[in-house]
Amino acid sequence: MCDTPFLREVPFLCRIDPRFRIVVATAYAIALAAIQNLPAACLGVVFAFALLLLARPNPGATCKRLAIINIFIVFLWITVPLTMGGDSIAALGPFHVSRAGIFLALLVALKCNAIAFVFIALVAPITISVLAHSLERLRFPAKLVFLLLFAYRYIYVIEEEWKRLYTAAKLRGFRPKTNVRTYGVLANMLGMVFVHSFERSARVYEAMQLRGFCGKFRSIALFQSRLRDFVFTGAAAAALGSIILLDIFPGKFHG
C-alpha cells in the first residue's frame, strides 16, 4: 500500500541539505505552475530532467509514477482541444480541434511533468522522518508536522489491522461480491478499523505523556547548511530565473 521506491539516496544530490531541496522544489513548482508560454515550459522540462538524471532514481519506479501522473494528462488531451473553441485546425465529425486547446494541453503536460521530475529528484529520496524535521525547521506549523509523522507511523499499523480483519472474514468464508451484503460487511470492517484507530490514538497519547511529553515536539535532527547547499540553491535560482525571464520576455520564440 505505501511502498517507498525512491528512498534510495544517491551521491551528490543526497548531500544537499534537505531543507534546501524542499525549498528549491517548492519554488520550482510554484513558478512552473504560473508560467504561460511554451518555450519557458520547455526550458523548465530541460532543467527538471537534468536534475532527474543527476538524482538517478530507480527507472522502473520513476516510469510507473510518471505514467500515473500522465493518465490524468491524457484526459486533458482528450477533452481540452475539443472544447476550447477558437481556430480549428481539424474537424472530427461535429467536433473542432482547436489550436488554443492543443497549446494549452501541451503546456499543462510539460509543466506537470517538469514538476514531477523535480519532486522525484529532490524530495522523494528524503525519508519521512527527515522530511518532517526539515519542514519543522522551515517553520512549518507544528501540528501539520505531527500529522505527517503520525500518519506515516500508523498507516502501516492500520493497514495491518485492515488485513487482519479481512483475513478473519475470509477464514469464515467471506467472499466479496457486488451486492448489498458485501458493502455492509466492508463498511463494518472499515468502521472497526476507525474505532480501533481512535482507541489506539488515545493509547499513543498516554504513551507520550508517560515519557514526559508536554505539547512540544523536540527533534534530534541537526541540519547544517554548507557552502555546497548555497551553490546548489544559487544554481537552481539561476535556472528558475532564466525560465521566468523567458516567460515574461518570450521575444522571437513567441508563436
Partner: peptide
C-alpha cells in the same frame, strides 16, 4: 512519570516515531 517508566503491553502504542533512534531519544528530549 519521568522517574517511573511504564513499558506498555502493546509495543505499537509505545513506539510512535518513524525511526528507532527518534523514539529512544523522545524521552530524553522531553
Amino acid at each position: 512519570r519521568c522517574a517511573v517508566g511504564f513499558v506498555l503491553q502493546n509495543a505499537d502504542d509505545q513506539l510512535f516515531c518513524p525511526t528507532v533512534l527518534d523514539d529512544v531519544a523522545f524521552g530524553p528530549l522531553n
